[in-house]
Design a protein around this nucleic acid. Structure first.
Lengths: 343, 343
DNA sequence: CTGAAAGCGCTTACAG
DNA sequence: CTGAAAGCGCTTACAG
């Protein structure tokens, strides 16, 4: 059943020219019909559609890119030196959001793992070679180095998380400030009199914003906001910070922890020394990651919409590429209180 | 300091034509010099190099692709429906290997998260639109659906892990059979008389191969190979399988577990019921993942070279694209015994 | 070793 | 609504 009408091109995929010929129209008209442009008679459109179907025609995106100067693909740049970043569940969810949103719009995702140690190692080279239309950057540390190179490339850029330096680049982030504030207020509302916090690193905006939010939330209660220890978002660091906190403030009866993982570490320490959660010490985490629900007891926390973060980054970049005006320079996504058993 | 010699193109990046003009040669010669082709006089080459430098010229890859019919990018297809796949540390390491290897060869990595539920959801569309030169597939389950579509695209394809069906597609895998065999032999060598196994799923080649290897390794000892329970590679499944194993074979004194994570689950159960590891029951895992070294006690295991798996997939595909003949249809990477404290 | 010319497969003013 | 033509920026036989 080697229907010659279906394979007239012997191997090589059919071209627009062949479609036009088969439809009895010009290449220009065929192009318009295929791209859904106006001003194509319905008969011409139908003929082209039939030809496309018969020939199994697919637009050659490379040729289209050369003509339109749009590549239809977006780079996702991650810093490879952070060993864990790709395997981080948070990152995986971001990526899923981005990928879904891009896919719906017919765009490709080009993944670039940049080694940030060297100034120019070539991993970002493709960005300057017209391979992509825009760039999405996800990087916790090393933001400056990478962002500098990306900005220099002149491509539209959206980053994940509020950048510490360079206020001039569009970003998307969770509303860490208000989330943390909610957590603190909740602890006050349930009657806790001495509320402490395990904050994130001082040099990350996510650490900084959750700490300021915590202070803001506690402000109305008149409580001091001096019971603060820092961790690095690992479980072990949460455990150690909890120990330091109790040494310095033995009277604390609640703790807001800037990530669920650190909160689990903190709870582990509390339980090890015989403190009951929530009776002796109430705990609120942040993220609503998988560990929150499976912790014992299940962890009260602040949810951030991670996949939505990725979706929104993609949306913001696409809107910019589409030339939308009056775009918000940056976007904060609402966080949400999730009550469980630790408060 | 707006040196006109450095920015003669006002915004728009410089073209090959401009480089040629600046170097005083033809476009053809400029092209040859830039691509390092032979038959270019050293003076011409030098002049072109200088012009490239001065103008800040970069090859427009899209134009090059149209002319050469090579895109310089490779698709990495993963199945999105496996929620965890992207956040799986194993996958992250594979991806690092692939990305590194591709980057060294100046190729792009295009990430495609395919929804395998639908026959054709468009996520694989780009593959048929000339976007990529070849495809790398990483997917544990759902292999058939995806591979079928990919094979149909006619693009060169290399998959990760031995496919259960379709022996006709090149793959790269760890030598699961010999690794498992080594594990079983080791347990016999240290004097265990009743060796059991917690195997992986029956419908995954990695599960199957590690089970056959185990049986092969035990064969010479004359021990029965009937003490087998299956898990699904999660910690919880390892725990449950260990329970079933002890119910059926209370006399077992050693267990080979087909993954480190399941092994940790198994150890958790053993310790919960008061069995000592390794005194009462010796345990060998598989993978040498992070949890192996941090387990208590540290887990004896079989190491598989995960990043090298990714590197090798990339190498195999590139070699095929380069037209190398006599390529091995598939490649098995050696696994290695890592002795720790559980045996 | 070099250059003029054709070609890769599309899109898009421009002039009907 | 339609078509002829130019153009996107490169590569590569071909003929010197």
């Amino acid at each position: 059943m080697n229907d010659p009408a279906k394979a007239p091109t012997a191997g090589r995929p059919p071209t627009l020219d062949e479609v036009a010929k088969a439809a009895g129209v010009s290449r220009a008209t065929a192009s318009r019909a295929i791209n859904g442009l106006p001003y194509v008679s319905s008969t011409a459109r139908a003929a082209v559609e039939r030809a496309v179907e018969n020939l199994g025609y697919r637009t050659n995106q490379v040729a289209r890119s050369l003509a339109t100067k749009r590549t239809g693909s977006i780079a996702l740049v991650v810093s490879e030196s952070e060993k864990f970043v790709v395997s981080d569940p948070f990152f995986a969810r971001i990526m899923r959001g981005i990928s879904g949103s891009l896919g719906e719009n017919g765009l490709q995702l080009s993944l670039i793992m940049a080694k940030e140690q060297h100034g120019d190692d070539g991993s970002l080279r493709s960005l300057r070679e017209g391979h992509v239309d825009g760039v999405l950057l996800v990087s916790v540390h090393g933001w400056d180095t990478l962002a500098g190179q990306l900005l220099a490339s002149g491509l539209p850029l959206v980053v994940c998380g509020r950048p510490l330096t360079r206020a001039d680049v569009p970003y998307v982030d969770a509303d860490n400030f208000n989330g943390a504030s909610m957590a603190a207020r909740h602890l006050v509302d349930i009657g806790r009199r001495r509320v402490a916090t395990i904050a994130g690193p001082r040099d990350m905006s996510v650490g900084i914003d959750r700490l300021s939010g915590f202070r803001r939330g506690l402000a109305s209660s008149g409580q001091p906001t001096d019971a603060v220890e820092h961790g690095d978002f690992t479980m072990a660091s949460g455990e150690a910070a909890m120990r330091r906190l109790l040494e310095a403030h033995p009277d604390l009866d609640a703790v807001f922890v800037a990530s669920d993982l650190m909160a689990v570490g903190a709870m582990r320490f509390l339980q090890a020394i015989g403190k009951r959660v929530p009776e002796d010490v109430a705990v609120v985490g942040f993220d609503d990651s998988d560990v929150a629900a499976t912790a014992v007891p299940p962890l009260t926390t602040i949810r951030q919409p991670v996949e939505e973060l990725g979706r929104t980054m993609a949306w913001r970049l696409l809107a910019q590429l589409a030339g939308d005006s009056d775009l918000p320079p940056s976007i904060l996504l609402p966080t949400e209180f999730v009550g469980r058993a630790t408060t």
